[in-house]
């Protein structure tokens, strides 16, 4: 009887395209990454209309206890004691870049008085573009 010669196949996993997939993922993350400059925990108000906020915008956040934090968009946000400090910070940022966009990130339960002080400070600092950070409103929100 004639026996067939056994051909040994070396087991191998094809890894040639692994680097391609990995670099594709890297490019995705590089394009989508935004370094968060403000980590204040707030429950944002909900709106139907929501527009994309430009990257590197300056932030003014108000937490549920009414504490205000500011960031110029490059550095981490810092606590300020009064709305007047928002004015001096915003004026400084606008002096450097008159087109700078400011984002008001406030908890929905904060009283209007507090937000009003911040918006007034931004107005006095000659800020033109402000975004009110919000979450998406859905039909179930009523």
């Amino acid at each position: 009887m004639k026996l067939k010669a056994t051909i040994e196949h070396k087991p191998n996993i094809p890894t040639a395209s692994m680097a391609d997939i990995a670099f594709l993922l890297i490019i995705f993350f590089m394009l989508t990454i935004t370094f968060e400059v403000d980590k204040t925990q707030v429950v944002l108000p909900k709106t139907t209309l929501r527009y994309e906020i430009p990257k590197q915008s300056a932030y003014v956040s108000i937490d549920p206890n009414g504490r205000i934090r500011v960031s110029d968009g490059n550095e981490q946000s810092a606590l300020v004691s009064a709305a007047d400090e928002v004015l001096s910070m915003a004026a400084g940022v606008i002096a450097m870049d008159p087109q700078k966009v400011f984002v008001v990130k406030s908890d929905g339960e904060v009283s209007w008085e507090k937000v009003d002080e911040v918006i007034d400070a931004l107005k006095r600092a000659k800020v033109r573009d402000v975004y009110l950070l919000s979450d998406q409103r859905t039909v179930t929100d009523g």
Binding site: L25, T34, L44, T47, Y51, R124, R128
Partner: peptide, 28 residues
């Protein structure tokens, strides 16, 4: 190397709300 970079980006990425309502302020 590529997977090391992926892990770095995955850890540092935070998906945050970056949308809102524009509120153009009139000139003071």
């Amino acid at each position: 190397i590529a997977f090391l970079l992926i892990v770095f980006f995955m850890i540092t990425t935070t998906f945050t709300a970056t949308r809102g309502l524009d509120f153009a302020l009139p000139e003071d």
